[in-house]
């Protein structure tokens, strides 16, 4: 009986595939160049383009929604949207709650940023990180004092105001900020490799969607379009796909 229902629902799925299925893409919208809300008020960035390309290949009708980073996983599992595409590294802890597709962005080292003139010791001082990120977990276990903020922008503001000695975040996010700070902000200490690559988060019960997304990412890796998008958004970075 169960098999019959399954077969019936698969038949229903494939029948519905002609009329594109609506998939709600959840993102944070505050982490350039991965994802941000542009001046027109729309979701923009590397992940917007990757997501739109995936949806075109998989013939999905995608709608973009933003959600606070803090509650981005709970709102996925309760069904407010169907994917998380928000620069989320694949980790074992997250994998227990949700599923990830294969990575669409390779593991990227995290970097420390501080005010110009800071010594490398600041990485053991008061370090800012965004709540519920791999960086926050790393700082807490590194022996430094962690101060958490709910948005990435606030972690940077904390360093500028002197509330924190340094901030730990993805290198690509900080690179723009350091480059445009007129020398006020610098990278300090050694980069740290934490977390895996970045994948699309889906509900554990959503196996079909996961398979469709994986197939689309496979295709983007094979035809080089993913590498092109990475080079476009991350200053000509060479990717290995």
């Amino acid at each position: 009986m169960r098999k019959l229902v399954l077969a019936a629902s698969i038949a229903a799925m494939t029948a519905g595939a002609a009329a594109a299925e609506t998939v709600r893409m959840g993102t944070e919208g505050a982490y350039p160049p991965y994802n941000f809300i542009n001046d027109a008020g729309e979701v923009d960035g590397f992940e917007r383009e990757v997501g739109d390309a995936i949806c075109a290949i998989a013939n999905l009708d995608c709608v973009w929604v933003t959600n606070d980073w803090d509650s981005i996983i709970p709102n996925l599992v309760s069904g407010n949207y169907d994917t998380i595409i928000a620069g989320m590294s694949i980790t074992d802890e997250r994998d227990e709650v949700i599923d990830f597709t294969q990575e669409y962005f390779p593991p990227d080292p995290s970097a420390y940023m501080a005010l110009a003139g800071a010594s490398d010791d600041v990485v053991n001082g008061v370090v800012a990180a965004q709540t519920a990120t791999i960086q926050a977990g790393y700082v807490a276990s590194s022996g430094a004092t962690v101060v958490e903020f709910s948005t990435p922008d606030e972690t940077v503001a904390a360093v500028r105001s002197g509330e924190a000695d340094a901030v730990l975040a993805d290198f690509a996010f900080l690179a723009d900020i350091v480059n445009e700070s007129n020398g006020e902000l610098i990278f300090v200490g050694d980069d740290v490799a934490i977390g895996g690559g970045i994948g699309v988060g889906v509900r554990e019960s959503d196996a079909e969607l996961k398979a469709a997304l994986n197939a689309a990412i496979d295709q983007m890796k094979a035809d080089g379009s993913l590498n092109a998008l990475i080079a476009k958004w991350f200053d000509g970075r060479e990717a290995s796909y």
């Binding site: 542009n38 922008d153 503001a157 723009d176 445009e180």
Partner: peptide, 16 residues
């Protein structure tokens, strides 16, 4: 969201 510092990724870059 609007007040946060904006890099030149945005059309209207500005500090905090």
């Amino acid at each position: 969201e609007l007040g946060g510092s904006k890099t030149s990724r945005f059309a209207y870059p500005h500090p905090d």
